[in-house]
Amino acid sequence: MTEAEWSHWMAAAQQGDANAYRLVLAEAAAWLRRFFLRRLPPPMIDCLVPGFGGADYV
């Protein structure tokens, strides 16, 4: 996701667009998962990034 796309989806999510909100959460979870995979043992990641995919938050 480019910075422009992120800005667009974030603005839409903040205005109440549920689909944009799910997309932002899914992208954030994917980024965090990649970040933590390089730094922590894999079993710890599910505790830090629950609901990977955003479905648990909407």
Rank of each mutant, 00 (worst) to 15 (best):
M44A: 13
A11I: 03
R34K: 10
Y21C: 08
M10S: 11
A55Q: 07
L37G: 03
R34G: 00
A20P: 00
L23T: 14
V58W: 04
A11H: 06
W9G: 00
R34E: 11
I45T: 06
R33G: 08
C47F: 13
F52N: 04
L37P: 03
L25R: 05
M10I: 08
R33P: 03
Q15M: 15
A13D: 06
L40K: 10
A18D: 03
R39H: 09
A20W: 00
E5P: 06
L37S: 12
L48R: 09
F52R: 09
Q15V: 02
E3Y: 10
P50N: 03
Q15R: 15
L48C: 11
D17M: 03
A55E: 13
W6M: 02
R22I: 10
M10Q: 12
A13Y: 00
P42E: 12
C47E: 14
R22F: 05
F52S: 04
L25E: 05
C47N: 15
L25C: 11
A12I: 01
G54Y: 02
M10H: 14
F35I: 04
D46N: 05
M44S: 07
M44W: 10
A30R: 14
Q14P: 00
Y21I: 03
A28I: 13
Q14C: 06
W9A: 06
E3P: 06
R22S: 04
M1K: 11
W6F: 14
E3T: 14
A29R: 07
R39L: 14
L32D: 08
G51D: 12
A26Q: 07
P43Y: 12
F36I: 07
F36C: 02
I45N: 00
M1S: 05
T2L: 08
Q14D: 07
A4E: 13
A20G: 05
P41H: 10
D17C: 07
F35A: 03
H8E: 15
L25T: 02
D46G: 13
W6E: 02
W6L: 04
L32K: 10
A26P: 01
W31M: 05
L37N: 08
E3S: 13
D56A: 11
G16I: 00
A28K: 13
P50M: 05
Q15E: 14
L32R: 09
R39W: 08
E27R: 12
A12Y: 03
C47A: 15
P41Y: 04
A18E: 13
E3M: 14
Y57E: 10
A30C: 07
Y57Q: 04
Q14L: 14
A12N: 10
W6R: 13
E3D: 14
Y57D: 09
A4V: 04
